[in-house]
């Protein structure tokens, strides 16, 4: 720790260190800590008419949390959200791992730049617009249904937006980049000679990945999985645009609470979701045996 401060002082000077400390401190306090604490405070207070706020009835209570833990429907939706976010995470990881490996270790020269550009361009377009594009594809008389009818595979349009499939598909599409780049970054630092050596010694490609690439890419995989999971668990746009009335998501429950002016209950639900994400992050770190320090590399 002392070494860290010494090198920082040497590299940046006193003013530089002070500048970083102040800007980061202001950011963390005003943009993260205070809003979260206000939300937490809201979640502990009962919803009261305006004249009672600050009065004797305005005390801290766990009532809002009890509402959540006794509401079986909302609990079910909560677990559905976790489960679906896990599906999104695993799908994104499965799709992205080969892409990241190809980009980092197989592709050479100008091809890398071209593929990178191909990955980034979709993200220049707003997430909502990309979800709208999927809405157009999956609609009852949308592109996919018309195509399948044209091919004669189906006679009547299928309602793709029933259930949770469309939302999961849309989320995977929207957040796949957040999986590619962390994995790509760590894979790029892997020495190609290690792969060649393993191959020369007769290791199968499966073994190379299992024994060399994956252990090396662990921090990237952990970061990618955490980001994808958090984004999937926290998005309200994807279920709003691609979900059907029969499928309701936890973020929509939170949204409805705020729209119905019950900010306190909404805050309690949001706190529960936030705790879930934090727990998931630490589980991923544990699972991949990655320290917080490695995560920042």
């Amino acid at each position: 720790m002392r070494d860290f401060w010494n090198t920082a002082l040497k590299d940046l000077g006193k003013i530089g260190v002070a500048y970083i400390l102040i800007t980061v401190g202001v950011w963390v306090v005003f943009m993260i800590l205070i809003p979260q604490l206000i939300m937490f405070d809201y979640s502990l207070r009962p919803m009261l008419p305006l004249r009672d706020i600050g009065g004797p009835k305005d005390v801290w209570t766990l009532k809002n949390y009890m509402v959540f833990f006794t509401n079986r429907l909302h609990m079910a939706i909560f677990f559905k959200t976790i489960w679906s976010s896990l599906i999104v995470t695993v799908t994104a990881l499965t799709i992205c791992y080969p892409i990241a490996f190809y980009l980092a270790k197989v592709a050479r020269g100008a091809k890398i730049g071209l593929l990178m550009l191909g990955l980034i361009i979709p993200y220049w377009i707003n997430e909502l617009l990309r979800l709208f594009a999927w809405q157009i594809i999956l609609a009852d008389m949308g592109i996919l249904n018309q195509f399948l009818i044209f091919l004669g595979i189906i006679a009547d349009p299928i309602n793709f937006r029933m259930g949770n499939g469309a939302v999961i598909l849309g989320m995977t599409y929207a957040y796949i980049l957040f999986m590619v780049f962390p994995i790509y970054n760590v894979m790029e630092s892997l020495d190609r000679n290690q792969l060649d050596a393993a191959r020369d010694l007769g290791a199968s490609w499966l073994r190379i990945h299992y024994k060399i690439v994956m252990p090396h890419a662990k921090p990237g995989i952990a970061v990618g999985c955490t980001m994808t999971f958090m984004l999937a668990a926290g998005t309200v746009a994807a279920p709003q645009l691609l979900g059907s009335p029969s499928s309701f998501w936890f973020t929509q429950v939170i949204n409805t609470n705020f729209e119905c002016a019950n900010w306190n209950l909404g805050a309690a639900y949001a706190t529960v979701l936030m705790l879930l994400c934090v727990v998931f992050m630490f589980m991923m770190l544990k699972l991949f045996k990655v320290g917080l320090k490695e995560l920042t590399q």
Partner: peptide, 23 residues
């Protein structure tokens, strides 16, 4: 196989956007 995979992946990335542009 790699070429096929990349083609499928980028089709998945770009087709929705191309459709939207045509529309």
């Amino acid at each position: 196989i790699i070429g096929l995979y990349l083609t499928l992946f980028f089709a998945y990335m770009f087709l929705p956007l191309i459709f939207m542009t045509i529309i």
